[in-house]
Computed example of a mutant assay.
Amino acid sequence: MTFCETGLTSQHVAALEPIENYLKGHITGKAEYMRKAFHPDARINSFRDGVLHSLSVDEFSARFQGQPAPDEAQRKRFITHFDVVGNAGTAKVVLQYPEVTFTDYMNLLEIDGVWKISNKTFSAAPQVTAK
């Protein structure tokens, strides 16, 4: 993870756990990390080609087949924003892949003492290659 953890409280560290699981899911391709990261009722939303796409955690997790992507060594991931107040928080995660950059906005909630991603919205931007 490329995010400065200096000076974070124990609450902040706990709230980062679902984001860390989310990133581990991407790195390893293992769906169990995604299921650990998200609250079961969470939705994963995007708007592409004039259509709203909304996935359940199970639908999203099914995309992870248990192995890293073939181009994993070329992928970079960053947490660019992280904020927690009380039992709610937000994180912005950027996933730079060879052909696309995803920008994820995560809503976080502490529910019964456990932090989870309660919803994710994201945007996908194709990488522009110089010709």
Results as ranks from 00 to 15, higher is better:
residue 2 T to K: 13
residue 3 F to Y: 15
residue 3 F to A: 07
residue 5 E to F: 06
residue 5 E to Y: 02
residue 7 G to F: 11
residue 8 L to I: 01
residue 10 S to F: 01
residue 12 H to G: 02
residue 12 H to I: 02
residue 13 V to E: 12
residue 15 A to V: 05
residue 15 A to Y: 01
residue 17 E to C: 12
residue 17 E to I: 13
residue 19 I to Q: 04
residue 19 I to S: 08
residue 20 E to Y: 15
residue 21 N to I: 04
residue 22 Y to I: 15
residue 23 L to P: 13
residue 25 G to A: 04
residue 26 H to E: 07
residue 27 I to W: 10
residue 27 I to M: 09
residue 27 I to F: 15
residue 29 G to L: 12
residue 29 G to D: 15
residue 31 A to I: 07
residue 33 Y to T: 13
residue 34 M to P: 03
residue 34 M to V: 04
residue 36 K to D: 04
residue 37 A to L: 05
residue 37 A to S: 14
residue 39 H to L: 05
residue 40 P to T: 10
residue 41 D to N: 04
residue 43 R to Y: 15
residue 44 I to K: 14
residue 45 N to D: 08
residue 45 N to Y: 00
residue 47 F to A: 07
residue 48 R to A: 00
residue 48 R to T: 01
residue 48 R to Y: 01
residue 48 R to V: 00
residue 50 G to L: 01
residue 50 G to H: 03
residue 51 V to G: 01
residue 51 V to M: 02
residue 51 V to R: 01
residue 52 L to W: 13
residue 53 H to R: 08
residue 54 S to D: 09
residue 56 S to G: 12
residue 59 E to I: 13
residue 60 F to M: 06
residue 60 F to L: 12
residue 62 A to E: 08
residue 62 A to C: 04
residue 62 A to G: 07
residue 63 R to V: 03
residue 64 F to S: 11
residue 66 G to T: 03
residue 67 Q to H: 10
residue 67 Q to R: 14
residue 69 A to Y: 14
residue 70 P to D: 13
residue 70 P to A: 14
residue 71 D to K: 14
residue 71 D to S: 15
residue 71 D to L: 13
residue 72 E to Q: 12
residue 73 A to R: 08
residue 73 A to P: 04
residue 73 A to Q: 10
residue 73 A to W: 05
residue 74 Q to D: 11
residue 76 K to L: 15
residue 77 R to A: 15
residue 81 H to A: 08
residue 83 D to Q: 09
residue 83 D to E: 10
residue 83 D to V: 02
residue 84 V to L: 00
residue 84 V to Y: 01
residue 85 V to G: 04
residue 85 V to M: 02
residue 86 G to V: 09
residue 90 T to R: 06
residue 91 A to N: 11
residue 93 V to M: 09
residue 93 V to L: 15
residue 93 V to D: 10
residue 95 L to E: 05
residue 99 E to A: 12
residue 100 V to L: 05
residue 101 T to I: 07
residue 101 T to W: 02
residue 101 T to A: 05
residue 101 T to S: 03
residue 103 T to D: 02
residue 103 T to C: 01
residue 104 D to Q: 08
residue 104 D to E: 10
residue 104 D to F: 08
residue 105 Y to F: 04
residue 107 N to A: 10
residue 114 V to F: 09
residue 115 W to Y: 11
residue 116 K to S: 09
residue 116 K to R: 11
residue 118 S to G: 10
residue 118 S to T: 14
residue 118 S to Y: 11
residue 120 K to G: 07
residue 121 T to S: 13
residue 121 T to H: 07
residue 121 T to V: 10
residue 122 F to E: 00
residue 122 F to L: 02
residue 123 S to C: 07
residue 125 A to L: 02
residue 126 P to R: 03
residue 127 Q to E: 03
residue 128 V to N: 00
residue 129 T to C: 04
residue 130 A to C: 11
residue 130 A to P: 04
residue 131 K to R: 11
